[in-house]
Amino acid sequence: MDATRTAPARLAAWQRAARELALVAVLFLAYKAGRQVVAGHADLALANGEWVWRLERLLRLPDETLVQGPLLSHELLVRLANSYYAYVHFPATVLCLVWLWLRRPAHYVRLRRALAALTAVALVLHVCVPLAPPRLTALTGMVDTGTRFGPSVYGPPDTDQLSNQYAAMPSLHVGWALAIALALMAVTAGRLRWLWLLHPLVTALVVVVTGNHYWLDGVVAVALLVAILAVLPRPAPDLPVPVSPAGPVRPHVVPAPRRAGHRRNPKVPAAADVRLRPPGRG
């Protein structure tokens, strides 16, 4: 293929990629800036944390301390959980988006819209309902495993200028993990595609074990994502290109039979039936 023809196509592809990266960066910066709006509501966030803890007990949800407690005596497992929380969430999402953008653009657009909508709704909830995580709520009795064992992505809540730690509801770790798992399941064939669900399941366990989220944080994130996906249009299915043993199928024009006694004007083309035949045949 002529290099002069491929150059504009490559330039257009790089321009689309730059626009997508810029869009993701703007959404992320807007989310980080919005979280800082509620950074000074520690007292309200702690009170809401105690309320969520009591509500979970009324709903008979499993006690988060019963999940965290047995792991505290296994430092390696706790460190692995902290590392999964710190280093898997965002890189896994970016890798999934990049792969879908390159291979399945329609599914990429749907996932990007779902993540943007979920993040926007989460930001509204963070502003309206600031919530302290279990590790910062004394009533729970849970341990901040990041601070005790490491690695930790957070500093002291009063001096942390990079993130608002009083924004636990909903859990975007769980919501994003489920979103990318569902997207990958949609483009994967076979029974093994169900293994993608291990990512959100492990994430839900990790965010509780590390004391960063309540069970209800994950439940609300899943409910919001399901509602968002229900209203988003489904991507168009990929249409396979028909191929015959002799090569790709291309249109083959077969003239229509002439009626008896009918003289055709040579200047007017006859009606033709368009049939699909392999090249070199018929």
Rank of each mutant, 00 (worst) to 15 (best):
L131D: 01
A132Y: 03
P133E: 06
P133C: 00
P134Q: 02
R135T: 09
L136I: 13
T137K: 01
T137Q: 01
T137F: 04
A138L: 10
A138R: 08
L139K: 13
L139F: 12
L139S: 12
T140M: 01
T140D: 02
G141W: 08
V143N: 07
D144R: 05
D144F: 02
T145H: 00
G146Q: 02
R148K: 15
R148S: 11
G150K: 02
P151C: 14
S152L: 01
V153H: 06
V153C: 09
Y154P: 02
G155P: 09
G155V: 10
P156W: 05
P157W: 04
D158P: 05
D158A: 15
T159A: 11
T159G: 12
D160V: 14
D160C: 12
Q161A: 14
Q161N: 14
L162R: 13
N164F: 05
N164G: 01
Q165F: 10
Q165Y: 13
Q165S: 14
Y166K: 07
A167C: 10
A167M: 02
A168P: 06
A168G: 01
A168E: 01
M169W: 04
S171H: 08
S171M: 08
V174W: 00
V174M: 04
G175F: 03
W176P: 06
A177W: 03
A177S: 07
A179Y: 03
A179R: 01
I180D: 02
I180T: 01
I180L: 07
A181M: 14
A183T: 04
A183F: 03
M185D: 05
M185F: 13
A186M: 05
V187H: 05
T188K: 14
A189G: 14
R191M: 12
R193H: 02
R193K: 09
W194D: 12
W194H: 06
L195T: 10
W196C: 11
W196P: 10
L197F: 03
L198W: 13
L198E: 15
H199V: 09
P200W: 00
V202A: 11
T203P: 01
V207Q: 03
V208G: 01
T210I: 08
G211F: 01
G211I: 03
N212Q: 11
N212P: 06
H213D: 02
Y214A: 05
Y214H: 08
Y214F: 15
W215P: 00
D217G: 05
V220M: 07
V220H: 07
A221H: 02
V222L: 09
A223G: 14
L225K: 00
V226D: 13
V226Q: 13
L232N: 09
P233A: 13
P233N: 13
R234F: 13
P235G: 08
P235D: 10
A236F: 11
A236Q: 12
A236K: 11
P237A: 12
D238C: 13
D238Q: 09
L239K: 10
L239G: 10
P240H: 14
V241M: 08
V243Y: 02
V243H: 09
S244D: 14
S244V: 11
P245M: 07
P245I: 11
A246H: 06
A246M: 10
G247P: 07
G247T: 06
P248H: 08
R250Q: 04
R250N: 00
P251Y: 15
P251S: 15
H252E: 10
H252P: 00
H252N: 08
V253F: 15
V253H: 14
V254R: 15
